[in-house]
Nucleic acid binder design. Structure first.
Length: 271
DNA sequence: CGCCAGGGTCTCG
DNA sequence: CGAGACCATGGC
């Protein structure tokens, strides 16, 4: 079971496109992939079924995930809204790089920057109009002005510097997979443009660490409103430390459901 | 126009 | 640890 729209529009990934109603196209790594949901089942119109199943984490037991959610009104409303949303297994570099560009940007802008970077630096995927997310070495060799032309602003320098560390092997994202959550977060936070929030996004969306709990402005707002007593410190770090444990081993799932629900209902209220 | 957006970094207590 | 300044850009 999967809710494809929620999975691809919830702000964990930024390049999938709905070509016609219910038909989604994008890249898994360097492979063109076309999908739709037919009778509740994920149908691979084009692409490799095994890699699709892995990318979309069809092995995650959502019933077990939901059973671990706190059974309060806020969480249940988010679950009702997002049911079937899956936390993807994105390529680590693509995920990390994208969230380096995400700081103080709206989801729509992150998407624009992702497409601009692909268009300018990515390798063409044969038989499609797509370009893959650029490899670290390609961005390491880009000029800051070229990156700024993709709308990155002050984030350009950070993306380039981190790309250089990854390309040189100084930062070994593949080797870091063996680290435990805390050590991996610490390693990621040594990279330019990567603080605790971006590192947690990489942990959750790119390294399969489902307990990682990114706290952004939206989550902080939700936490203060629904899960916080007045008087307690409500800095992002305090919120993460006090609440991640409450949401259990799949706290990242709970976080994403709360984030998506809040953002969608707020947008609708605004018109 | 002011405000805000999936923040990070540096400085100063 | 925490608060504040600063960093660019775009949509509303």
């Amino acid at each position: 079971m999967i809710n494809l729209r929620a999975t691809l529009e919830c702000g964990q990934v930024f390049h999938w496109t709905e070509k016609e109603v219910g038909l989604w196209e994008g890249l898994i790594g360097k492979e063109l992939t076309v999908l739709r949901v037919e009778r509740g089942q994920l149908e691979v119109v084009r692409g490799n079924a095994t890699r699709v199943a892995r990318y979309f984490a069809m092995d995650h037991d959502l019933a077990e995930v939901y059973a671990g959610f706190p059974q309060d009104e806020t969480m249940l409303a988010a679950l009702d809204f997002c049911r079937g949303l899956r936390i993807l297994r994105q390529p680590a570099w693509e995920c990390l790089a994208t969230f380096i560009t995400s700081s103080m940007k709206q989801v729509v802008h992150i998407r624009q920057m992702s497409f601009a970077l692909r268009e300018l630096f990515g390798r063409a995927v044969p038989g499609s109009g797509w370009r893959a997310y650029p490899e670290p070495a390609r961005l390491a060799g880009a000029s800051e002005n070229e990156l700024r032309a993709c709308g990155l602003g002050y984030r350009a320098k950070n993306l380039q510097a981190t790309a250089q560390r990854v390309a040189s092997g100084e930062a070994d994202l593949v080797g870091w997979e063996v680290l435990d959550d805390d050590d991996l977060r610490e390693a990621l936070c040594t990279l330019p443009g990567v603080g605790r929030k971006v590192a947690n996004c990489a942990l959750l969306f790119g390294f399969g660490r489902l307990s990682a709990f990114p706290v952004d402005t939206w989550i902080a707002r939700i936490m203060r409103r629904s899960y916080w007593r007045g008087g307690q410190k409500s800095t992002p770090l305090a919120l993460e430390r006090r609440l991640a444990s409450r949401f259990g081993p799949h706290a990242g799932y709970a976080q994403q459901y709360l984030f998506h629900h809040a953002r969608m209902t707020a947008r609708r209220a605004r018109g």
